[in-house]
Amino acid sequence: MDRRSILGFSGALLVLLVLPALVSAGYGIQLLNMALIFSILALGFFVLFGLTGIFAVSQVAFWGLGGYAHAILTTRYHWPFLGGLLGAMAVTAVAGLLLGLPTLKLRNQYLTMATIGFAEAVRISANNFDKLTGGPNGIGRIPAPALGSLVLNTPVSKYYLSLVFVVLIVGGLWRLQRSRLGRAMQAVRDDELAAEAMGVHVTRIKVLAFVLSAVAGGIAGSLYAGLSSFVSPDAFTLAVAVQVTAMVMIGGRSAIGGVVAGAFLLTYLPEWLRDFKDWYMAIYGLGLLVILIFLPEGLAGGARRLADRLKRVKRPVENVALGGGGQ
């Protein structure tokens, strides 16, 4: 990492560290918590879509699987928080593998459809396997996250817990993007045949991307279960899957910082618009569209262009993928 990136990363981290002190205790902190959880979900999707170029709409399914795995392990089997988290990660890793392997060969709309089918199948199963999942009533009374004797039962402490994961994942992705593996992923994204010709094991890379994104979903699910202490099928609908997709696209699909910004923006946008009352969801739809139209490379690209203009310096256009990730 170069000096400036470190500076930038620390700057953003500092803002995120002090944010809880600046917002209202209930509403503000809850939104921040959700923004972080959505950031983790979106970062997982970033591995799949941004890095490897696989457009799947299944991130919500892994979120749900992780949430339910955590809920079942901690309430029924009284596992500690970390056990629930690891369990959620294990379940989603296996699920990612199971979804990734057979759907590898599918492209574009076929993959979109297969992953929508998978997401719906997970939600319907949660609704119908009452004995395991509590059915439509969901599972409540999920214990607050605890690390040994330290119980994180306030929203602020849960926020910092999620923040730790966001920082770890952002750091990990930063490394990944610049590693051999990350370059192989981007090669698959840019031209699968060429990548294969260069000796990249395309199948292995794709499955790995699926598993990594699924595990991120599992972590988000686990944290969500700990945050809300309640999971039910209604939380994991297709609408959320699309929201996560939009977060990555609107943030800037190839920039890690942009993905986090996209997750924050789409968590907050409907809330800001509440004052428009009856029309606010219509305005939300329009808002999404406007961002999509006017910021083709997302928030990250938009910020870059804005800064370029401010500096009045013409720079050659860089490969977004290589330039991305500046937190």
Partner: peptide, 15 residues
């Protein structure tokens, strides 16, 4: 390097 800084800026503004 510039890209990174700018992105930080953007993110900070959003934050």
């Amino acid at each position: 390097v510039k890209t990174a800084t700018l992105k930080v800026l953007a993110l900070t503004v959003i934050m």
